[in-house]
């Protein structure tokens, strides 16, 4: 047996590094890294600025198997420049999705029946503040390339997102995470566009007190995102919990996976606009105001309960579409 893999499964996901996460999200001994540290491809832009580059440019990309599906895995490393997306990092992400599509085309070209062929999935573990400022322009462009690749993958290759790292997912990567098919978060994970510190700095402490950790987590944390259905699942902060959920989702038919999307069609835009309406004219001041509107009465209990109790008892945004209240 693969001892390293077994050891990692019981570790907190949030404490693992990007490579451990990529390795352990796949079936034992199935992960092969592409353009790994061995090739020493580093950012040439950082040394002149006095920054030490890293051999993977802060993102691990590779091929593996998740449950029964061949998978392309992307895992961001927040300990390197906050997981910021630079030129190489961004291009690695874009290529990962394009190569997943190519893998799927190869499978489809084979004569086997579609059942025995399997279907390629993309798994992305986000742990990033968005654009890496040292390479800001290239990082920005990479975001647009990733979004385009996502659209190209629609209906062909499912994209499963994970937010469970210590930085979470902010900046431009926030809307990339919103554009996946299925999003899995933990209590540790946070998802947003503008980070709390930036809101405080630009608008003021009265708008957002970034030092108030409870406020930060109930505004952008996994529980709130689960209530608004931006996150499809909330899991415990263990490697095993994430891996099992990813493997389960990857085994679904592609239509079921696509039904979990929150944006990406005209109908979903209209649906989201109804959620936006609830917040207009300063009607809500806090995420918990929204929780109450969805029928959650004992909010303190929900907040303090463990993940499975929370998942079982939380009343989520009704979303208004048939079949989405499961």
């Amino acid at each position: 047996m693969d001892d390293r893999w077994n050891l990692l499964q019981n570790q907190p996901f949030s404490r693992l590094n990007a490579r451990e996460r990529a390795y352990a999200i796949c079936n034992p001994e199935s992960f092969t890294e592409l353009l790994g540290p061995r090739l020493k491809l580093t950012s040439p832009h950082l040394p002149p600025m006095g920054q030490t580059p890293q051999f993977d440019d802060g993102v691990v990309v590779g091929l593996g198997t998740v449950g029964k599906a061949p998978a392309v895995v992307v895992s961001q490393e927040s300990k390197f420049l906050g997981g910021g997306v630079g030129e190489a990092h961004g291009t690695k992400m874009v290529m990962a999705i394009r190569l997943a599509l190519r893998g799927q085309e190869i499978l489809e070209s084979r004569s086997k029946s579609s059942e025995s062929r399997g279907r390629v999935a993309v798994v992305i573990s986000f742990d990033t503040g968005g654009v890496r400022l040292q390479e800001a322009n290239a990082g920005l462009l990479a975001h647009s390339e990733v979004m385009d690749a996502f659209q190209a993958a629609r209906g062909k290759v499912p994209i499963i997102g994970i937010v469970g790292g210590t930085v979470g997912c902010f900046g431009g990567m926030g809307f990339v995470a919103a554009s996946v098919d299925v999003l899995i978060m933990s209590d540790v994970g946070r998802l947003g566009l503008t980070g709390p510190g930036v809101i405080e700095e630009v608008v003021g402490t009265e708008e957002f007190d970034a030092a108030n950790r409870a406020l930060v987590w109930r505004t952008t944390g996994g529980r709130h995102r689960f209530i608004t259905r931006d996150a499809d699942f909330i899991v415990e902060d263990t490697m095993k919990a994430f891996r099992e959920k990813v493997a389960e989702v990857a085994s679904w038919p592609i239509e079921k996976i696509a039904s979990k999307r929150i944006i990406g069609t005209g109908e979903m835009v209209l649906e989201q606009m109804r959620l936006v309406d609830l917040a207009a004219n300063d009607r809500i001041q806090d995420s918990w105001d929204l929780w109450r509107q969805f029928g959650n009465e004992d909010i303190e209990y929900l907040w303090d309960s463990n993940v499975s109790e929370f998942e079982a008892n939380a009343r989520r945004w009704p979303r208004g579409r048939v079949g989405d209240n499961d």
Binding site: S144, M147, F150, Q151, G174, F175, V176, A177, A178, S179, L191, G192, L193, T194, V198, I199, V202, V203, E207, F208, T219, T220, H224, R225, T228, D230, I262, I263, G264, M268, V269, Q272, L275, V276, L278, A279, D282, I284, Q285, D286, S287, L290
Partner: peptide
């Protein structure tokens, strides 16, 4: 994009993401 608390509570990233998709 607007940097605000309500924007984060509702999830402004969906608005920008929806337009891009």
């Amino acid at each position: 994009m607007s940097p605000g608390k309500v924007e984060e509570i509702i999830g402004i990233y969906k608005s920008t993401g929806a337009y891009q998709l």
